[in-house]
Nucleic acid binder design. Sequence first.
DNA 1: TATAATTGTCTATATCAATAGACAAATTTT
DNA 2: AAAATTTGTCTATTGATATAGACAATTATA
Lengths: 244, 244
Amino acid sequence: MASSLERRSGVSLWRQIADQILHSIAAGDFAENAALPPEVALAERYGVNRHTVRSAIAALVQDGVLRAEQGRGTFVQSRKRLSYPIGARTRFSEGLQGQASERRSVLLESAVEPASRRVAEGLGLAKGSTVIRLETRGEADGQPVSRATGWFDAGRFAGIDAAMAETGSVTASLKRFGIDDYLRQSTVLSARHADAADLADLDLQPGAIVLVTVAVNVTPDGQPIQFAETRFPAERVELKISAL
Amino acid sequence: MASSLERRSGVSLWRQIADQILHSIAAGDFAENAALPPEVALAERYGVNRHTVRSAIAALVQDGVLRAEQGRGTFVQSRKRLSYPIGARTRFSEGLQGQASERRSVLLESAVEPASRRVAEGLGLAKGSTVIRLETRGEADGQPVSRATGWFDAGRFAGIDAAMAETGSVTASLKRFGIDDYLRQSTVLSARHADAADLADLDLQPGAIVLVTVAVNVTPDGQPIQFAETRFPAERVELKISAL
DNA sequence: TATAATTGTCTATATCAATAGACAAATTTT
DNA sequence: AAAATTTGTCTATTGATATAGACAATTATA
């Protein structure tokens, strides 16, 4: 194993090592509260100075992933990564049952604006039609696990921003407009480094990776309701694709 | 827009800027062959020195994303990203039809070895059972688009490595063992920085991101056939989740 | 209790990353 | 032809990153 490192890549060695340790923990190489190899051993394995390993560990301690105890060693603090299901009936609140005791969706911002080409196409509207944009953050046990931007046809769903602010749930808000059921028509997935806004909203460290889904939700008879882009912090969330 | 940058984060400013430009292009802000803003303007927008912007551009030129012409400007070289479908009948060769004229799967390495706990669980075998591991690379128009590690029960599929080397297709190889149809039982998706091996196999630059799928393929009656982990370069591939 | 193992802190040095400024080279515009 | 715009190259300086070595502080073990 022990993947090697790339120098003068624009990503410092300590961050590469921190990423690898994080990945190693997520892959199950270390149980919770298990001890990491001592710094000297890690330095040798990665072929770097002990101080460089210490920088990586310091970053992960800062993130709450590791816990260092002088004289004893360095231990895995928490290694939970939520498994977020994606399927025909993807619902934020339902999906994480059993994995987190407290789940909620927070409305950060809403706006009424003309639809961009991308959004208009997704919703099957004419370009420039008025749409309502909702910016929301999903939290599980107080920790941000998703950051979504959703668009709705302003004509059909006027006031959904208020409903969302009140109920804190897309599903509940749509019920007020007579939508009892909706399906996920398509999901396109990609990944990238988190931008500054996502770093702030998701409480991530620079260099963090986000999984990005772009989805269209439709009524059972195929009428587009919502166009949404959602960013998930890759270090805290994995996506499980279930039957559609 | 113009997301800001994070200093002393372990990720250099030039790489952060390169990532943002890449994202901006992928988001459709610039058409193919469109000119980027001049270096001075970019430097001002990001609040950095012109030389820092030049480092970012140089990296993207090296990647073949941009093309710089002295006296004229800097232009978008190519912004195609393959859309790789994921669904119940995910097949490498079929999925990319129409997006690339030449598609193939190359067997890099094969080995017979005891199953790790993870693989054994995925295939429903006892831990330590003998399995065949196949390392393959998917290519579209000569460019690497996927890097897969697949495991098969060595008892049932003895010789599949030879069949794979001959046919270059998992589907064709399985036919020789009487498997005419198979389904994808589950897919778990994550993202991380590419490790050194992936960088080499996928011809990526350090710091690149890979989408990772871990999947189990089963016969129509639910018997596990293959356990596989596949890495996709996020800058070249997006995953489209279709009906299962 | 003494020893070993492990993390924490300090100093010093070399290399990479970023800033700053000046000017050359190529292209487009006036 | 001249001016303006834009990329390319050079020198110099500052701060972050990485290496090297030594030793202190804490904990577990012989």
